[in-house]
Design a protein around this nucleic acid. Sequence first.
DNA 1: TTGTAAGCGTTATCAG
DNA 2: CTGATAACGCTTACAA
Lengths: 338, 338
Amino acid sequence: MSRPTIAGVARAAGVSVASVSRVLNGLPATEEMVERVQRAVQELGYVPDARARSLKVGRTFQLTLAVADVGNPVYVTMMRAVEEVVSAAGYRLVVTTTGPDVVDEVALVRGMARGYADGLLISPIRVDEDLVKSIRECEVPVVVAGNVPAKAGVDTVRANSPKGMLLAVDHLVAKGRTRIAFLNGPADTVPGAARSKGFTEALKAHDLEPTAAAEATDFTFTAGRVAAPGLLGVGDEKARADAHLPDAVICANDLLAVGLMHELAALGLRVPDDVAVVGMDDSELAEQCFPTLTSVNLGSAERGRRAAELLLARIEDNDRTPRRIVVQPSLSIRRSTP
Amino acid sequence: MSRPTIAGVARAAGVSVASVSRVLNGLPATEEMVERVQRAVQELGYVPDARARSLKVGRTFQLTLAVADVGNPVYVTMMRAVEEVVSAAGYRLVVTTTGPDVVDEVALVRGMARGYADGLLISPIRVDEDLVKSIRECEVPVVVAGNVPAKAGVDTVRANSPKGMLLAVDHLVAKGRTRIAFLNGPADTVPGAARSKGFTEALKAHDLEPTAAAEATDFTFTAGRVAAPGLLGVGDEKARADAHLPDAVICANDLLAVGLMHELAALGLRVPDDVAVVGMDDSELAEQCFPTLTSVNLGSAERGRRAAELLLARIEDNDRTPRRIVVQPSLSIRRSTP
DNA sequence: TTGTAAGCGTTATCAG
DNA sequence: CTGATAACGCTTACAA
């Protein structure tokens, strides 16, 4: 009772395997041939083996999307956009998780050489020489949703974090907030570094000094909660007495922002009256949390879409010169800012 | 500059392809043979082709996890648990999304016959004859995280929704709430039907009548918001004057609960003072929302883990008799109930 | 239009 | 222990 193969179908239909293959692939054949083959396929319940097919044709019609953390809602936005583009192009999308370590990312990229998929869309959280090298040497097309050095010569679609930061600071300043703090994720990550730099620049543009800054150990809700007290100078009565308590906090992503808001509530501080909070990513969570979160939309959906298009284009023609697309941010104003 | 094959390695090492294969698979070989092969592998940067290998050995060492909606945080809990089990067993996990339609689920299950993976772990949201049939006829092992008829003869791991409902009602009643309403998802889904039944039973056990019930069009945040006013009798002043406004609402999942809480806030109703809210799934969102959400833990992590174990066991031995595991619920009490 | 046969890159069998 | 060689299931020249 094993799976029927194309040979079985051919036998049942009384034709050659080549004819079966042709009919299945819509190549020219007689009316009768098509008829007989299709009947045999029906009867046997034949389904072509993707492994054998891809071994022969050299393509799997699968694309891999690799993200660091499936629990981060920004990736679901991106994932949905990617899925839409690639499935329209006739590819299956499979998602895998890398975790926060760059070595796992490298292993994943290297592993692509095994031929699991025709292309890889990766959104790396940490980037090092090894990763860039592995991407450049990767036999299958790779596009990066994120920032890698231009010299890497790879297609990238990235956000404009500094511009996003500026939007956030502009908004806060316009609302009269000047004691602005920054809750970052790990600074040794790509987004962490970019947002830190952007924050400093944005404040400078307004002639402001950072009121406080803290670095969470991860871009997660829990890490945000843990890092919040340090940022707010809890236990440091002098700081608070000196009015060093921030009147606004910009967070490097929405999960951190929500974690922070919980700590603020626990401290009896009201959002946005006492402290305004701005997130980044404008993920679904920004609408779900309470108060709803003003968040910098870094264009995750568009980045996903553009990255997917880049990947498809590169699969078509691997010799095209790498493109580096930058998606512009916007600000989604909600209730966590005045 | 094409990818090196095992033949290339053999040539470079001056040995046979068979020997290369043996060394690579850790079969007995001389010290020197191992040495030569490994050097050649290094030099050429050879990586074995998974497609060819799986065509030959009949296994891909990949497992597929199919969920309806990547945006539902309950799946990230499950996904993490599954990932842990299967990667420990040497399998890669790939995730695909089915969407809310049963036809897509059926297509996915049928498609497994193409040999993409060695097993499928599916958490179907809607189940019909076709789906059961396709699962039973599927050539690769399938385990269902959810409820399918026993006659289907398939491994399942499911939650005990009625028991979970009872925990929720017990808790609310103990806190003095008696006007309990129910915000369900679509009743034509497996979880929707189970939870509806469970709710009715649980109220009966306490000699209570449902105060109100509504059915959201999806198990999503937005659907929860949209359905909330109807549940609360908004615009129906008589109902509210008659004190028919519920003093507690149980929601079929956490996303719906969070959507409801937003509407409650918009109406000026306080949680839990005016209305207590209980969610189900005890997902990450339950801790992230505000107030934090009391939620029925339906054991999504354990279900994922057990389901993964079942799948691995069935891959080992496809003749074992199907098991039907039921995971018991618990209640995670947080701030949305008194 | 249809059939024959040669691979795709592995692993596994069977001699040596 | 090692080497040739036959599959795995499919597509695709090339021939008929």
